[in-house]
Design a protein around this nucleic acid. Sequence first.
DNA 1: CTTAAAAATAGTAATGATTACTATTTCTAA
DNA 2: TTAGAAATAGTAATCATTACTATTTTTAAG
Lengths: 130, 130
Amino acid sequence: MALKYSRQRQVIKDFLMTRKDHPTADVVYMNVKREYPNISLGTVYRNLSLLANLGEIQRLQVGDGIDHFDADTSRHYHVVCTKCGSVTDLAMDSTPYDELTNTVNADFEGIIEGHVTYFYGICGNCHKKL
Amino acid sequence: MALKYSRQRQVIKDFLMTRKDHPTADVVYMNVKREYPNISLGTVYRNLSLLANLGEIQRLQVGDGIDHFDADTSRHYHVVCTKCGSVTDLAMDSTPYDELTNTVNADFEGIIEGHVTYFYGICGNCHKKL
DNA sequence: CTTAAAAATAGTAATGATTACTATTTCTAA
DNA sequence: TTAGAAATAGTAATCATTACTATTTTTAAG
């Protein structure tokens, strides 16, 4: 099953690349619908999953039960605001990431391939409002 | 709404304390049903959520879309096996945890309260079989 | 030991994100 | 140009979890 070009997939990825707020499939759907009115929600889900599996985008499971997506595949962390639910990028070099993986691998009887970390707290915007 | 004792809640917590494999609500239900045949699935969900909110147990969202539960509320990490899906405890002191939180707080414009981390890889059992 | 109000339960229906299905349309290599 | 593979739109199904409601438990006070 060779991958075949699809206009819809391109539009979905293009849209995701314009956003830094890690939208859900439903948000992607509602926005893409504006320039592609008869796109199907199933198509959005299918392509987001496909792109995530190909490693072209990242799937984030931040704990609210809804998958979020990020077109930035470089290694970076995320902060989930416990007040407004926003998901924002966290600038940080990858040294702590590698250190943590190595520390854990040292005395684990299997193989640690990596880890996912989500930070929780009050985002900049909500903090200003207090 | 003061908390009132319930036999069901006690049985649910007692069962969870006997397990180290971080069972899902459905697994808890099936097991508790054996000694409490007419317990309801809704009761299991309601009490697991209640206990988690009270801080008496921990809810784990490991990425498989199903909530897992852990009666051990001490701070510790978990490894999710990418082969068999098992969730196992990881012995590690909390120094890396605090360090990571502090590192991130240093230049973040909001407030980081904590973070959740899940390690992914091959568990000890699956590793032996290779 | 009653009893009455609050809380919890069992059983069932509803919710909501996601996936599956299918007839039709779109891609693309020959 | 065309044929077969892949993708889509639209809809139905899935499945973990939550909501609802009549009934049962719990518990504190008389």
